[in-house]
Design a protein around this nucleic acid. Sequence first.
DNA 1: ACAAGGAATGAACCATGGTTCATGATCGAG
DNA 2: CTCGATCATGAACCATGGTTCATTCCTTGT
Lengths: 218, 218
Amino acid sequence: MAYRKTDKVTARLADTRRSILDAARGLVAEGGFAAVQMTEVAKKAGVATGTLYRYFSSKEALCRQVFREVSAREMGMLAEIASSDEPASERLVKVLRTFAGRAVRGRRLAYALLAEPLDVNLAEERAFFRRTHADIFARIIEDGIDDGELRRIDVRIAAACIAGAIPTALIGPLAPESHELDSNPDRTVEEIVNFCLAGAGVARASGKTRIKERRTTA
Amino acid sequence: MAYRKTDKVTARLADTRRSILDAARGLVAEGGFAAVQMTEVAKKAGVATGTLYRYFSSKEALCRQVFREVSAREMGMLAEIASSDEPASERLVKVLRTFAGRAVRGRRLAYALLAEPLDVNLAEERAFFRRTHADIFARIIEDGIDDGELRRIDVRIAAACIAGAIPTALIGPLAPESHELDSNPDRTVEEIVNFCLAGAGVARASGKTRIKERRTTA
DNA sequence: ACAAGGAATGAACCATGGTTCATGATCGAG
DNA sequence: CTCGATCATGAACCATGGTTCATTCCTTGT
């Protein structure tokens, strides 16, 4: 007979694959998908460029995989909260806080996932990611309406609004400057969450918002 | 003496410049900035590719100019409404309706301006465009708060939320499918506007104000 | 009409960066 | 140890699309 992969080899292959994915993910975390160049990935992973193509059929395939892995973690987190059995408004608050909070803390990665200019192939992946978000929001809002907790609105549109408002307010070019954000991310998150809740018709249980600053932009 | 541009020549030059810009704008309207290729622009404008470089120093310069011209019209429109002396909540409603309404009707162009993946140079231009939007929203909200019409919120964040929610809900991958949108764009617009108003704390006075929106569309 | 520019041309050029492939190293089985 | 098969290598290749520039065509003022 000829050749049959032994476990050790299989493991090594898996390792290499992992290290390629890790390298790519690292580049994304540093400079977004724009910074993913095959030569760089190879260098960082400690393999030759040609090797990349033994594990991924193309740059696109590699990037897709990275996108999936990174986004899966986020989605899972939100999905879990969403499926708890608390009242809808409570779940909504938690989901929004988690979404906004995680984005604010991992801004670079969040930017790559949500807002970075990227080409059509990856845009597809992002579309899925966003749709999933929106679905999670929509589901909760729908529950809330069914239970009479929320006023009747078009859940899909409200969900889309939320899915757009949060990233833009946090990480888009409109976002408060980084230092500002870093100095008090929780305030910002809270404010954004409030906007979305109000938009979705959640009667703001918490009475205190204590806001002082009110800045006119330039 | 040698040569001095005559008026006729100056006019012709201006014409050529215009036709180049128009050609580029046309391509943007059809396929976004991604569809702007110098050879295509030249063909469409009826000139040689080299000629383009007599009028614009680079592709980037051309695209920037196109972006500015297109976005200026939109911003002017909103700014005008915003500066009227109606009560803030009224202005806010009008501005949002106009923004959303125009985007929905010129979805392709709106996509190019607001959401299309584009490279950093143009992204700068877009950032300015968005910031201006947000400033307009912020100004109105601030007025509303000062007049006691709106509850106190962080105006910049609310403005950013609005600026993010509208495009996403309308033209992003989350948007209702086109046929759906086309069949009843006004409903969708109204629903989005409602979300934003609620988010900004406008007590929905709505006895349904039928507003004739201004069309100046290209 | 003609000389002296400016304007227009478009094929050639070039930079970027993804992909390939001939070559050599490594591995499994007999 | 040796053979056949797989894996790894990285320099060469290629496609895309923006930019250049030698050449030609037009305009202007005498």
